[in-house]
Design a protein around this nucleic acid. Sequence first.
DNA 1: CCAAAATTGTATCCTTGGCTACACTTCGAT
DNA 2: ATCGAAGTGTAGCCAAGGATACAATTTTGG
Lengths: 151, 151
Amino acid sequence: MSGSKREATVIELPREETQAGRFGKTRDAQSIALLDDYVELISDLLAGTGEARPTDIGRRLGVSHATAIKTIARLKREGLATSRPYRGVFLTPEGEARAALVRARHRLVVDVLLALGVPVEAAEADAEGIEHHVSETTLAAFRDFLKVQRS
Amino acid sequence: MSGSKREATVIELPREETQAGRFGKTRDAQSIALLDDYVELISDLLAGTGEARPTDIGRRLGVSHATAIKTIARLKREGLATSRPYRGVFLTPEGEARAALVRARHRLVVDVLLALGVPVEAAEADAEGIEHHVSETTLAAFRDFLKVQRS
DNA sequence: CCAAAATTGTATCCTTGGCTACACTTCGAT
DNA sequence: ATCGAAGTGTAGCCAAGGATACAATTTTGG
């Protein structure tokens, strides 16, 4: 995924979007979403049982432990997590910060769905997919909406 | 993406989810979303200019025409579209039906976001990502919510 | 303390969405 | 009528997320 697109020698630049524009947008949002899911889950596991194991992570996310380990390696590359062989995974300060943001966003989306009358199970399930596509602008509107609701 | 997972000879079935369960869920939702985007766009182009060309489709979706053509081939395989060399793309009845559903869902999501106070540009942009993750249950709640709003 | 079970890590391979490069039509002007 | 531009199609490559298979390391029950 997310090919290079270099506009090598030929001209052929029909798209107005810059390289930076294309990256960090639709196609790669998915990739970020994956990291967010891992970070949030690891944070939960650490808070809950005190340790986050690749096998548990994989099971919770519905992927094999091998896949989980590969993604954890990526988290480490990105500076979000640390781990040493056979010793579980931990989050860096940045990782924890990210987890906090993700969790807050998740809660906000769920709360809005509930306020709209969505049944709690559906709200939790759908929020998982929705939360990765909500802009900061929309989140702000969500906060305001809930504030008014409560008053 | 979406590997096989056959539980070949070894036992090793740690996940309780069935094969059908894993498919059609998180990981593959993305794949469906892609087809939905194409179908919706093709429908729009046909309605607007009377023809849907691979180059236009690619440009509108921010991918190369080659990528568009590959995905169109997949639409054909799935029975959603038809096309003959150098003659543009058309939708099958199923494709049109799908487009109608997708468009209705898109509108609904946008309307809900607007009702929540999200600025129209953000609403349109975010709906694009959100719409693919909203369950039928949630859509129903959205309809009810708007109905009440209007009254 | 030690063997069996569980967990973790590594090596490959597959599929998919993207891209570039290049070949082949079509179309629009002379 | 023809030539060049624009649009289409095809082939081959890459990266990423997943999977399985197998090796290595804990853990744990006797």
